[in-house]
Design a protein around this nucleic acid. Structure first.
Lengths: 209, 209
DNA sequence: AGCTTACATGCCGAAAGTTGGAATGCAGCC
DNA sequence: GGCTGCATTCCAACTTTCGGCATGTAAGCT
């Protein structure tokens, strides 16, 4: 059976299998044998390719971070050289791309977040990711706002994105991308001065009484 | 040695020990013996009081939910019969109360969130909590906004709260309550029509250029 | 004195991570 | 063509540890 040049193929298959196990059983059920079984191979194979269990998990986390980076980049390309508002929207769009709102992705994110609290390596990866998002947002806001306000707006929008995502994950139902985008866009409009106050205030319409 | 009436004391000690283990080792390191050791007792004791491991974890989660409920309630009491803005602020304040922003609490929340994805019982508890927050917010917003807008504002504020919290947890540094409160209050002001647009826009001050 | 509560200890079955060996096939060199 | 080395894969141990339970014992209550 053994063929040569299987390394990259097996790597990907095992990482994919890991996400599948996380999706329907949780990180605590990611064992060498559950992953191997899911991938249709035998237990020892994981150690062969990734050294040990941590190696597998780290590879999986890098994959998920890369996917997000690519999703954001993909949306940003189309907004290149546009207004801050458009570029901010693109960043938001990337964060809510289908690849990021699938049940598998959301469960994996939550699992890795949780794990990163006690794993320095995970923490490093995750913080680098956080900072990139924040600094991207801050740069765009900074084109129209004072630095202090831009930083606040970036922190707020980053939190709003993560919060919408988190609540979407925990809600159990399918992720409502439309609502997430709408609320995020509203947030952007309310912080950028170029958008007229009265116009942006679609959600501050007074109650008829 | 055995004294009578230890049950409630031991219950609490074991739950506290559980949080301590979660805080500095993560949920995956919560074992019957690690908890018992942390509490200064012997291994079999957990089964004695909680039946099994799941019983302990469920009791711990109920505790954390109760703590949040009480923190929110405590702040809301002082805002009783006040304006929606004041009451919304009180809810936010409760969510960022010290008991909720301690490293132990934040790590535990994240761990339970993650676990709730694959544990129906945890999911039930957690969703009930989510809905209470959302409906409280929606009620207050609903006093000044049309229903549709109130629901959006509630979803947004809930997400912002959770997101600020999540990012605070993952940041590794001490939680910046002041910033979290400020950003949440800004969000409230920007959605309530009663606050003047120009006044609320402290964070939309245009860049000097 | 007997019953209940409170706790420790020890054992067992299950499962996990890791390692080493063996079997199998591919590629290049003589 | 055959030998050798390397990559690939499975299988079978081995060690550790976890959760659960049964047993034993000490302290109070009535």
């Amino acid at each position: 059976m053994p063929k040569v040049g299987m390394q990259p193929v097996r790597h990907q298959q095992l990482i994919d299998a890991t996400f599948r196990v996380i999706e329907d059983s949780g990180l605590s059920d990611v064992t060498l044998s559950s992953v191997a079984t899911e991938a249709g191979m035998s237990a020892g194979i994981v150690s062969h390719y990734f050294g040990n269990k941590d190696g597998l998990l780290e590879a999986a986390m890098r994959q998920i971070l890369r996917d997000l980076r690519e999703a954001v980049l993909f949306h940003c390309i189309h907004a290149r050289d546009q207004s801050p508002r458009t570029q901010l929207r693109a960043i938001v769009h990337g964060n809510f791309a289908p690849s990021q709102t699938s049940p598998a992705a959301m469960r994996s994110w939550l699992a890795f977040w949780s794990a990163s609290l006690n794993n320095p390596q995970f923490k490093r990866l995750q913080r680098a990711n956080d900072r990139r998002l924040h600094s991207n947002l801050a740069y765009q806001f900074g084109r129209e706002l004072e630095r202090k306000n831009a930083l606040d707006a970036a922190t707020g929008l980053a939190a709003l994105i993560d919060g919408l995502w988190l609540r979407g994950t925990l809600a159990g139902e399918a992720f409502d991308s439309e609502q997430a985008l709408r609320l995020s866009f509203d947030f952007i409009d309310q912080h950028l001065p170029s958008s007229n106050c009265a116009l942006s205030a679609s959600s501050t319409k007074r109650k008829k009484s």
